[in-house]
């Protein structure tokens, strides 16, 4: 900044310059990093300069690149976009593919999950937060966040049924865009995305209620994301 606007504009790519990222989750070096945007996500997660890779050499399962409100990405979409290009730490690259195969850089709250983490439990945790945060002025958010939290709690405890996923997607769709402030959107996006990419894990929770009663069930039987090609094969 001291060098003037022209120098500052040279950093990074296009509109993305520098950003302070708060990296957390199953990584060797959690912390706050000031990065020059344009490095690849792969470099950010695995280089020793930044996150330092996944703890204990485990596999990467998923990543929330921009704070709890943005859509979660499964492993096959974190480092590569759907078209096979390297995903960069920029606003444009992370939102590549829209919400179907992309996410958002958002506020830079970077969360990494290893193979043992349970996405259902994580999604429930997010929705619990938004339920608590809702101010209660407008009806979709006031009622919807509580509803979604209850359904996710039921799924997490193994008491859900197969219709719950469609119900959640529908409720999230009814909240998204219809509220006064963006908290409604923020509550709806992570849930819709988790079901979009990890539906099989939600189904696992319905089909194996006795296994998921243990919150650490992911440590015994890691459930990895299924790429669309693997599903069809």
């Amino acid at each position: 900044m001291n060098d003037g606007g022209a120098e500052y504009a040279k950093i990074g790519i296009g509109r993305s310059t520098v950003l302070v990222i708060s990296a957390s989750g199953n990584i060797n070096n959690p912390g706050v990093y000031e990065i020059e945007m344009g490095i690849t996500v792969d470099e950010f997660i695995f280089s020793d300069q930044y996150c330092g890779g996944i703890t204990n050499g485990k596999r990467l399962k998923a990543c929330v690149p921009g704070g709890s409100s943005v859509p979660i990405l499964p492993d096959y979409l974190v480092c590569k976009t759907a078209t096979g290009e390297d995903r960069l730490m920029t606003y444009e690259s992370l939102s590549d593919g829209g919400f179907a195969t992309g996410s958002m850089l958002g506020s830079g709250g970077f969360i990494v999950y290893d193979e043992n983490q349970c996405i259902v439990r994580n999604t429930w945790n997010f929705s619990r937060f938004y339920h608590h945060e809702s101010c209660g002025q407008c009806s979709p958010c006031r009622e919807g966040t509580g509803w979604m939290e209850k359904v996710l709690h039921r799924l997490e405890k193994g008491m859900g049924n197969m219709g719950d996923m469609d119900l959640l997607v529908d409720v999230a769709k009814k909240i998204e865009g219809n509220t006064i402030c963006p908290l409604g959107d923020a509550a709806a996006w992570p849930i819709a995305a988790a079901i979009r990419h990890f539906r099989h894990e939600f189904e696992y929770h319905v089909l194996h209620p006795e296994k998921v009663k243990d919150p650490k069930h992911g440590y015994r039987e890691p459930i990895m994301p299924k790429a669309p090609s693997a599903v069809t094969a």
Binding site: E143, W147, V171
Partner: peptide, 9 residues
């Protein structure tokens, strides 16, 4: 959807 939200509680 809004009507449903108003009615759930």
């Amino acid at each position: 959807g809004v009507v449903e939200f108003l009615l759930i509680n």
